[in-house]
Nucleic acid binder design. Structure first.
Lengths: 216, 216, 216, 216
DNA sequence: GATGAATGAGCTTTCATTCAT
DNA sequence: CATGAATGAAAGCTCATTCAT
């Protein structure tokens, strides 16, 4: 088929058989794992259902028993990957509840994003740039981002005016820069941790200026 | 601009014909233009050599007369796109030579990147995320980035210690965030200009802190 | 009704299990019913053994326990359908034994065929045109037709010379035309009953001419 | 894919390249011929694009160069076949213009239909029963039938009341019965010509009765 | 007997690339 | 140089059938 965005599942085929028994669960897991590995190693261009099935040690028929089409398979892989991100950011957020210190906020934000991008960066790269994700998945990513911004905004509200703008700048900056350094980088970057430290300084400097500005 | 830098993928394959005559130049230009438009409009998935030739008003045979394969074609399109970026950043850089004001530096950097990303954002998006670029092209992009960092570092050297680190943070932050807001955004972002303004504040706040730090 | 007449496509394959017990009978009946319904609703293209098993509330394994392959299943469905036709025509025939009136003959013939084609016309359509029936089934249909022709020929013998020819014309005409009007028609035909009445007139007119001809 | 009715051509692909040059024309002709032959010999189940291309002595790519999908290919084969039928019936019709003799009408009708069904009966069989024709093609067949009925009705108008009913009976009877004898028959029928003769007698007898009836 | 997960041959379709004209 | 018809490897997906449990 090639690269094209895959069409919606045909009516009557949408219901992926739910793995009720152990064998099925293992098969689905093997397919998802193989798919994620192939995607990480060979990119979207190498994401070939026949190859995935073979890598999973499963017949192509079994793959299509559980995933109505290629798109459903990437969507599930993406969904699992996002779920990890959601969990990570959630734990980062809960870990700083109650704190009023901007330093804690920035540390948690940067550290959460670093952790997020360090887990399987090749898969992350493929999913975030090459793969044509379904609207549902895109919406979920966007929701996660907006949630993070809203959370940071709430934490910033007492210290800063237009906390929404500040929160968006903080989150988008941290996210995109960490993504560049930990995911897109091809080995050029000497010490990513050093850069992350510098990033924290910048974000704090910004917050300091904004706080001063709101008080003067 | 892109003077023939087309790698022969298959060893022994004839080097692409250099368009010396007017008609040839026009043909090559038409193909590149059509390819860029298709890439911008339909993405990498729609980047089909037969379609491009048709759109260019040229036979598929002619396309392969000038480009040994598909990769060479995207590489040339990417090369031209990068050349524009190089020119833009160069002019931004020359425009601020002699100035010692960090404000001028940050303004020029952000404005240059905004201009860069505003020119044909759909093409930029495709080239920067979907398309599998050749190592040569990737290297050229990396060189451009390093050049910008070096330039900014040089400008920062009098005011800041570890100017390399500061320059990398400035350039990477401005680049990735502007990319997110002006290229990847799907209409959610209310006022990108407002955000760009906020970005400048953050970069300046960072420089202020670093300068103070280097003096204390 | 269809007593196991399932050919073993692959030589050496175990003959299908005869359902002797109640549960088995019910299972077979459910499969046949589901198959007939699917065939009527979705046509031969939708006649999918997995779907049929699901619709029958039976596992695909059970389906293959009772039917060695897909062909055996359609053959059995076809067989049952033919059996109904046989019964209908038989009763139509017995109902007119003893009568010497060509009008009674024609009425019974046409009415019998109308009844035949009105019962589950979608299934009838699929079986008579889309489905690749096995030679055995085709032979059985042919036998039924020949039987009907023979019967009508016998009734015609006293009144007509070459009664075989007349009988074949009568039966084939009535059968094919009623099939067209009651089964193949896609809603265009205004009043099928009116046309059936006209059909009777034509058949009677033919018999009248033939009778006169045989006497003159 | 199997047997399912094929989905409509994707937008942007619908335009089958028109064969402008001799080579193309020959290729298209070879594909159509091979397709028709395969359809006649192996039926719809054997109508496999790879096999057709091979039989046509052409690559599978060439087949899809001229026919956007399998359905388009059968549609074109069907269209050509119908065109022959249209021409045949038209010539049959023009050949009897001006005549007021029912005998001439019936002879022309029956002979025309016999000629129609004698040309490539296996192809005719496949197209008329197995193949899932596109709505356009079905409409064209229906139009042809209605045209024939209208024509016969017009010829009958002076002699018969409700000429529409009579015409439909005549045309449908002749069509379906001739189809049965010349196309569906599997060698059982001894002398189809003899039966066609008998069919004429029946149709004439019907017309005679209807004429008498309208006059009495 | 019953189950349903698993199989894999086979089919449709795409598109980068070639080469005879 | 230009053309565009032709190529065919490769990929997505289906479904009749099997067999371990």
């Amino acid at each position: 088929m090639g690269d094209a965005r895959l069409p919606d599942t045909k009516p009557g085929k949408a219901i992926v058989r739910k793995p009720k028994q152990g064998r099925s669960k293992a098969t689905v897991a093997a397919i998802l794992e193989a798919g994620a590995r192939i995607l990480a190693e060979r990119g979207w261009a190498g994401f070939n259902t026949n190859v995935i099935a073979e890598r999973a040690g499963v017949s192509i028929g079994s793959l299509y028993e559980y995933f109505p089409n290629k798109q459903a398979l990437i969507d599930e892989i993406a969904s699992n990957h996002i779920a990890q991100g959601e969990a990570l950011l959630l734990s980062a957020a809960t870990g700083m509840i109650g704190s009023d210190d901007p330093g804690v906020l920035v540390d948690a934000l940067v550290q959460g994003l670093v952790d997020l991008h360090r887990d399987d960066p090749r898969l992350h790269r493929a999913l975030s740039s090459e793969v044509p994700l379904s609207p549902d998945i895109r919406a979920r990513v966007e929701t996660l981002r907006q949630g993070a911004i809203a959370f940071v905004g709430q934490a910033l509200a007492p210290h800063v005016d237009t906390p929404g703008v500040a929160a968006q700048l903080l989150v988008d900056t941290a996210d995109t820069v960490v993504h560049r350094w930990f995911v897109e980088d091809d080995g050029t970057l000497a010490r990513p941790e050093r850069m992350a430290e510098e990033l924290r300084r910048m974000l704090l400097a910004y917050l300091a200026v904004r706080s001063r500005a709101s008080r003067s």
